[in-house]
Amino acid sequence: MAIRLSHLALRLASGAFILNSGVGKLNLDAEHAGQLQKLALNAFPQLADLEAEKFGKLLSYSEVGLGASLLTPFLPSRLVGLALTAFAGSMVYLYLKTPGMTEADGIRPTQQGTALAKDIWLLAIGLALLLDGKKRKKVSE
């Protein structure tokens, strides 16, 4: 199964971005991993049970895996779109739940929230890959 040409730019851009982010986190020290975990706790309090270094490793491995999946041409776009939608959806949820990230309206980003608000684009890409099914030919009777 080949990548549809219309999906190529979506998969390359998001895959390279996420892969680079994950590779950058592979050697996180405990302090930086703890900062990321503290941010994540705003939306996902269950993560408090993990050690900061383990959280950092899991996050980096997840991003590397997702980024590589998006860049792998033989994986179906709907499958990687589902994974990207789940990942980006959790990032958007994190953005919406973290105090100080949004203006008083709860949607528009503050200066501090802009870095997380950009994940809405990843969510849109994931949904486009997930929902863009092949057109089926009608069978004439």
Results as ranks from 00 to 15, higher is better:
99 P>T: 10
49 D>W: 15
55 F>K: 08
124 A>D: 02
89 G>M: 08
91 M>A: 12
128 A>T: 04
22 G>V: 04
95 Y>S: 08
2 A>T: 08
39 L>G: 13
99 P>I: 11
128 A>Y: 06
69 S>F: 01
105 D>R: 08
63 E>Y: 03
86 A>F: 03
108 R>I: 01
121 W>Y: 06
33 A>V: 09
67 G>L: 08
59 L>Y: 05
51 E>C: 13
83 A>Q: 07
44 F>E: 06
97 K>T: 11
81 G>N: 03
129 L>D: 01
6 S>M: 11
117 A>K: 14
110 T>W: 05
99 P>K: 12
37 Q>E: 13
116 L>V: 14
96 L>W: 12
19 L>P: 00
60 S>D: 01
95 Y>D: 09
78 R>L: 06
127 L>S: 14
51 E>M: 13
100 G>Y: 07
73 P>W: 03
108 R>Q: 09
113 G>H: 11
41 L>A: 14
6 S>G: 05
21 S>K: 05
94 L>H: 10
21 S>M: 03
1 M>S: 04
14 S>L: 06
116 L>Q: 15
114 T>V: 11
25 K>A: 06
77 S>A: 15
106 G>E: 04
81 G>C: 02
23 V>P: 00
114 T>W: 14
21 S>V: 04
11 R>S: 06
87 F>S: 05
96 L>H: 14
52 A>S: 15
138 K>R: 14
129 L>V: 01
96 L>C: 13
64 V>Y: 01
79 L>F: 10
116 L>N: 15
44 F>G: 06
43 A>F: 09
41 L>Y: 08
115 A>Y: 06
58 L>V: 07
26 L>P: 01
6 S>V: 00
117 A>T: 10
66 L>N: 04
75 L>V: 00
89 G>K: 11
119 D>H: 15
15 G>N: 04
105 D>V: 05
83 A>S: 09
118 K>H: 09
